[in-house]
Every structure is written in C-alpha cells, then in structure tokens.
Amino acid sequence: MPPNLVELLKSLGLRSSSDLFAQSVGRLGHSFEAVRQLQAHPTRFIDVSFARGDEVRSWLSALVAGEPPSVLVVWLADRTAAEMPFPVLLERYDDLWYPSMDDVAVIFPDGGLLLMDHEERFCFGRVVTAA
C-alpha cells in the first residue's frame, strides 16, 4: 500500500474500509482466482515500466465508454479497499499504486476488472467467477 494512503484518500474526500474489501472479494467470487485468470488471459494489456504518465492515462481512459463509473479500488495484500470515481483513479493512479510494491485490483460495476500489478503490468478483462 502506498505510504500515507489513508491520508491521501481523506484528502480526496474518500475513505477505505475493511467492509469495502469484503464487498470486493465477494464481487471477485470470494477468491482471487479471477485475478490470477486475468493475469494469464487479459483482454487488454500494457507494460507501464517505461510508459509516460499521459500514455498510461490514455490507455486507462480507453477502458471506459460513456459516463465514467465509480469503481472499487482494492489493495489486495493490505486487505483494504476504497470506492472512488474513475476520473480520480485516472488522475491519481500513480499516487494510489506503487510499482514493485503493490497489486491493486479495480472492479468496475459492469464486471470489468483491472489489475495494476507490482511487475508494472496493467491487465484488463472481465470478472469470471464460478457459478
């Protein structure tokens, strides 16, 4: 988790909670298998290790058509999550995710799943859970 994440979220008018983490795990089918599947078979992928911020933001913005939704942002190892408008994530992704340190999942209301992983890869696809 980025240092001072709680303070950053407060400054953005957001909060993190373990309740939101539990909700996000439920949306992922009560396991992280959906995240592992996404890493293996993404619909879209970008290696951000050498990408400029504007390139990353352009790639991220292409994930959303129409009105930007609120998304659940989940710091997997830290068992915390926050709900935020997608434009906030778009503008502040580099404050909310630290390369070589974080695996952050972003769950969209329509079933989209973005993983920003510690190896500086962003993968996007759909949440696929067992029935």
Rank of each mutant, 00 (worst) to 15 (best):
E120G: 01
A130T: 11
G111R: 00
V74S: 07
P99F: 01
L115S: 01
F45L: 10
E119P: 01
L76P: 05
V73K: 00
P2W: 00
M84Y: 03
L89W: 02
E55M: 09
P109W: 10
A82W: 10
V73M: 12
E120T: 03
E7N: 15
S31Q: 12
R126E: 15
S16L: 05
D117K: 01
W97T: 02
P42M: 04
L89F: 07
V73C: 14
V64K: 07
L114Q: 02
R52N: 02
C123K: 03
A105L: 08
L60V: 08
L90H: 11
A131W: 13
L14V: 09
R79V: 10
D47R: 00
L63F: 14
S100P: 01
V71H: 04
S49N: 13
A130F: 10
T43A: 15
D117W: 02
D78N: 09
V56D: 06
G125M: 15
A62C: 13
W75K: 06
K10E: 07
E83W: 14
W59I: 02
L89H: 00
A131Q: 12
A105F: 07
H41M: 11
V56F: 08
F108M: 13
L28H: 06
R15A: 10
P87E: 05
A34S: 06
R79T: 12
P68Q: 10
G26L: 14
L115Y: 00
S100V: 00
V128E: 08
S49D: 14
S61E: 09
V88T: 15
D19G: 13
L20T: 13
R57C: 11
D95M: 05
F50L: 07
P2L: 03
G13I: 12
D94V: 00
E120R: 03
D110W: 05
T43F: 13
S18Q: 15
G112N: 07
V6G: 07
F108K: 00
S61Y: 06
P42E: 08
P69Y: 06
R15H: 10
D47T: 00
L9H: 08
P99Y: 02
D110F: 03
W59A: 02
D94Y: 03
P99L: 00
H41Q: 12
L5C: 09
T129L: 11
M101C: 09
